[in-house]
Computed example of a mutant assay.
Amino acid sequence: MRRVLILGGTAEARALAASLTGAHVVSSLAGRVTDPRLPAGEVRLGGFGGAEGLAAWLRENRIDRLVDATHPFAERMSAHAAHAARATGVPLLALRRPGWAEEDGDDWRRVPSLPAAAGALPRGARVFLTTGRRSIPVFAARADAWFLARSVDPPEPPVPSNVEVLLARGPYTVDGERALLREHRLDVLVTKDSGGAMTRAKLTAARDAHIPVIMVDRPPLPEGVQATGDVAAAAAWAQG
C-alpha cells in the first residue's frame, strides 16, 4: 500500500485525501487557521522544522509519494517540499487549482506582489481587502486609504485605525458580496489569484458594480516540479 503525504488544508487536498482509498494517507496542515476543515484519514498539525525537517519526516515515515496541495501562495512550503523531495528521492506532485480568468466586463489590474498591489491603489480608495490577515500591515501603510479586511481568523493586534476587520469564512454568495460593496461604499477590490469557486463571488460582484480589481499574480512553482489542477489525475499519480 502506497504511503502518501498530502501537504495543505485546501479543498483540493481534502478531495484528494477522500479519494485515496487504496493508500495510507497522512494530511499535513500548518495549523495557522483556527478550527480548520479536516480531511479524511490521518491528520498531522504543525510545521516540520523547515525543508530538512520535512525530509527527515519523509524518511522516518517511509513516504512513497508527496503531494503539495498547499494554497497557491504558500511559496515557502512549496520550496520546502521541492527541497525535501530532491533530498529523499520521494516523487513530488503539485496539485494546484486553476487560476481565475478575466471575463467580459471585468476591470483587472494584475500586479506581481502585495507591495505592488498597495502601490497600485488609487489615492483615497475604499478597499475591499481579501488577501489574508498577514497582509494587512502591507496595505495599512497607505494612510490615505480605508480598508475592509476580510479574514478567517483575527489579525495580530494592534489593528491600524484605517482598517476594519470582517471575520468570515467562505463560500460566499454574489448577493452577499454585492451587499458588502454597497454597505461600505467600497470602490476597489484587492485579491490574490487563488482560483476556485469558493471565493469567486467577489469578482462577479465587482464586475457588476464596475469596480476595478487589483489581482496579485501567483508565485511560480519551484523549478522542475510537476503540477496538475485535476484531483483525479493527482489520485492516479499518487496510487500509481
Results as ranks from 00 to 15, higher is better:
A23E: 10
L29A: 04
V25H: 05
G46Y: 12
R44W: 12
P39K: 13
A40D: 13
V43Q: 05
A40W: 12
S19E: 02
R44F: 13
V33Y: 03
A18F: 09
A40N: 06
A17D: 04
L20C: 01
P36K: 14
L45D: 03
G22I: 10
A17M: 08
L16S: 02
A23Y: 15
S19Q: 07
R32T: 15
E12G: 00
V26E: 11
A23D: 07
R37V: 14
L38S: 00
A23T: 14
G41A: 04
P39S: 02
A18R: 05
V26A: 09
D35H: 14
V33T: 14
V43T: 13
E12H: 02
E12N: 01
T21N: 07
D35Q: 09
G31V: 06
A13S: 04
G31Q: 00
G22F: 14
A18Y: 07
G31R: 02
L16H: 03
A40T: 14
V33K: 05
A13W: 13
R37S: 05
A23I: 15
P36S: 09
L29D: 03
A30V: 03
R32A: 15
A30E: 04
H24T: 08
G46E: 09
L29C: 07
A17K: 04
L16G: 02
A13K: 09
A15L: 05
P36H: 13
T34P: 00
G31W: 10
S28A: 12
L29H: 13
E12Q: 06
D35M: 05
T34Q: 08
S28G: 04
S19T: 11
L20V: 01
S19P: 00
E12W: 08
V26F: 00
L20W: 10
G22L: 13
V25K: 07
V43M: 10
T34S: 11
L45H: 11
A15W: 04
V26C: 09
L20M: 01
V33A: 01
V33N: 00
P36I: 12
L38C: 04
V25F: 10
L45K: 06
S19I: 07
A30G: 08
G22Y: 14
A18H: 11
P36G: 05
A23H: 14
A15F: 03
R32E: 09
L20N: 00
S28D: 06
G46M: 09
T34H: 12
D35R: 14
A13M: 08
A15D: 04
R14K: 01
V26M: 10
G31D: 02
V33Q: 06
S28C: 05
G31S: 05
R14H: 04
H24A: 07
H24F: 06
A18G: 03
A17T: 07
S19W: 03
T21K: 09
P39G: 00
H24G: 00
S27C: 10
A13D: 03
S27V: 14
D35A: 11
G41T: 03
T34I: 03
L45W: 12
S27E: 07
T34C: 01
S27D: 02
E12C: 00
L16D: 01
L29F: 15
G31H: 07
H24R: 13
V43W: 10
R37M: 13
V43R: 06
H24N: 01
A40S: 11
T21W: 00
H24M: 04
P36L: 14
R32V: 15
L16F: 07
R14N: 00
L45G: 03
H24Y: 01
S27I: 09
R37D: 06
P39T: 04
L16Y: 09
G46W: 13
A15Y: 02
R44L: 15
